[in-house]
């Protein structure tokens, strides 16, 4: 690990302003992903701003009837919240499908959204990777791509976003609330929060320099059956090959988002409208323009079958 200076932030704006002013500064909260990457010297911040003392660890009801989740709410606490379990079951299901108990106790809501890909070529500093070292090429294209993306990828990067939580938040139409270094706040719809790689896979989110996530807002609950189905190589504690988050009403209408297939939680609103037509129609729309590789083409069939299973379960 490279040496770094460390400070405990005193307020959200103080943290944001300092992060913007100091070159190489990073926020640290749970640290479960950042420290892993710092040990490998994939992340090399010169200064860490510890935001753990800023509060932001409550889940409160909004005037609109939804929930506002503090950025520092731990994954365990979010999954266990009585209101989340009752009205946003897909979110609890996604959270408990991710990582291990130890990691969920530390990992935060904001950190989960900001976690980096687990692409093996990103993790291996001896390999080219446009995300880790822009312009160095992509080792994954033509390499071992079994875990990697089939849609939304580019010729520069085929990494997937590893989060389960974010997939559920995408199907719930969450918005990410932030504070900028000048103290102003804004809400970023989760659909626009994660960026597709294009020619700049190193730019992963809509966040500006120093901008700090302070909360995630969920709109008023819509009812329906909430399902998160994760398909992986082990029964527990493994990243998704494919995951499906769905909220489906009694009338068969609803929303569906996929994890494990794209650089961001993958949802296409036109595909939602096809839910009553069945998994083939939904899948065809979700994967229109897909660019699977030899090793990961199976994900398209696997996703279709998982969607079929989820639709069947919702019908009861």
């Amino acid at each position: 690990m490279r040496p770094f200076t460390y400070e405990r932030a005193t307020s959200a704006q103080d943290a944001a302003a300092k992060a913007a002013a100091m070159p190489g500064a990073r926020f640290i909260a749970g640290g479960t992903n950042l420290l892993d990457l710092m040990k490998l010297e994939i992340e090399t911040p010169g200064h860490l701003i510890d935001v753990n003392g800023l509060g932001m660890d409550q889940i409160v009801e909004t005037p609109e009837g939804g929930l506002r989740i503090g950025a520092l709410v731990r994954n365990t606490d979010l999954a266990a919240d009585r209101r989340v379990r009752k009205d946003y079951g897909v979110l609890t299901r996604a959270l408990v499908a991710g990582a291990s108990g130890q990691l969920r106790n530390k990992a935060t809501t904001a950190g989960n959204l900001l976690q980096r890909t687990r692409c093996p070529y990103f993790y291996d500093v001896n390999m080219p990777c446009n995300k880790r070292k822009p312009g160095s090429g992509c080792g994954a294209i033509g390499g071992f791509s079994r875990q990697l993306g089939v849609i939304g990828t580019s010729e520069a990067c085929i990494a997937t976003h590893p989060s389960d939580m974010a997939v559920a938040m995408r199907v719930l139409d969450a918005s990410v609330e932030t504070m900028r270094p000048d103290g102003t706040t804004r809400a970023i719809p989760i659909a626009e929060f994660h960026k597709l790689p294009g020619q700049t896979p190193q730019t992963e989110t809509a966040l500006e320099k120093g901008e700090l996530i302070i909360s995630v807002a969920l709109p008023k609950p819509t009812g329906g059956t909430h399902i998160y189905r994760k398909v992986r190589d082990r029964a527990s504690y493994a990243f998704a090959l494919v995951s499906v988050a769905a909220v489906i009403g009694r009338d068969g209408k609803g929303a569906v988002a996929l994890g494990g297939v794209a650089p961001k939680p993958w949802r296409v609103e036109e595909a939602d409208a096809l839910l009553s037509k069945g998994a083939q129609a939904v899948s065809d729309r979700l994967f229109a323009d897909a660019t699977p590789r030899e090793d990961n083409a199976f994900k398209i069939m696997l996703a279709k079958r998982t969607i079929a299973s989820v639709i069947a379960e919702a019908k009861g």
């Binding site: 640290i28 640290g31 479960t32 420290l35 130890q102 990691l103 106790n105 530390k106």
Partner: peptide, 11 residues
């Protein structure tokens, strides 16, 4: 319970 390897003592 947490993984003590993935957290800094100063935190």
């Amino acid at each position: 319970r947490i993984n003590s390897c993935l957290t800094l003592a100063v935190m």
